[in-house]
Design a protein around this nucleic acid. Structure first.
Lengths: 145, 145
DNA sequence: TGTTGACCTTCCCATTGTGGGAGGGTGCAG
DNA sequence: CTGCACCCTCCCACAATGGGAAGGTCAACA
């Protein structure tokens, strides 16, 4: 179904982006301002909804708003070299790989700790004892996601 | 070396927790207030530094401040059942597993997209075309870490 | 003694992305 | 005409951390 005049609620439903976030994206300049009706309501067409869907999808894939902004620009630039897009994607993949490695290392540690803890009524608990022992170069888990 | 009277800077260096964070932890009640000297400076002993090290280590393992708070309470409660600690650790492991699964799914998608993108001067780019295609039940990557 | 520099203190602001809610206007259906 | 479901703009909150300003303190050195 093609509709070229929607309130923000319908655009939200079709794109999967909350109305709150649509307004926010517009505020911070990620999206251009959409036209307003005489009553001040934002007016969305299929074109705008398509952009919102693009944003939703890239966000789901874990790109930051900054990266989404770049991708949007590349998307609308018909002459851009595909190299940039590919690099962005590959950087992102590398980032995910690194974080997964970090998380696996942490899991390994935790599994080791949990294995030696009885987990019953007794108070003896090697986990806590170990937590109290500082490590040398332990670095915090990387944030985001 | 054992020192039982340090400024926040030394306590920070020994524990690996920034002075900024030490004050913050105290503010939000994660840590009890330390004694002050007559000049108003916080005064740390080895005991306090040990607690800070505990916090640092649990933070590095990805526990939230809330969870750290629980672990601290369990740590200082000599009679607590080890069950609680073990459950906390296992919940955390399960959480990490879930997030790794999510991230791997995203990586798989991104790898598929990147494979078909030439990544050269040409503008043709299947990544962007695909990003513009909305998926059905794609859900955002879970945050934290 | 006086100055300098390295500390310490508190307080405020920014970050990232999202949700909640107040207080008010609008529009359609019954 | 009334009620309800929208829409609008603002402000607040989150988690955890860093940055920086404005001011007090202390030790070392000339």
């Amino acid at each position: 179904m093609v509709r070229t005049s929607m309130n923000i609620g319908d655009a939200s439903e079709r794109s999967g982006v909350s109305a709150k976030m649509i307004r926010y994206y517009e505020n911070v300049g990620l999206l251009p301002s959409v036209p307003r009706r005489t009553n001040g309501y934002r007016d969305y067409g299929d074109q705008e909804v398509a952009v919102l869907q693009f944003v939703r999808r890239t966000r789901d894939l874990g790109f930051s708003l900054d990266e989404v902004s770049t991708l949007l620009a590349l998307w609308s630039d018909k002459k851009r070299p595909s190299r940039e897009v590919k690099r962005l994607a590959e950087d992102h993949i590398a980032d995910l790989e690194r974080r997964i490695r970090e998380m696996r290392a942490v899991m390994k540690t935790l599994r080791g700790l949990a294995k030696h803890c009885h987990g019953d009524e007794r108070s003896e608990c090697p986990i806590l004892d170990d937590l109290a022992t500082p490590r040398k170069a332990s670095s915090p888990l990387t944030k985001r996601h």
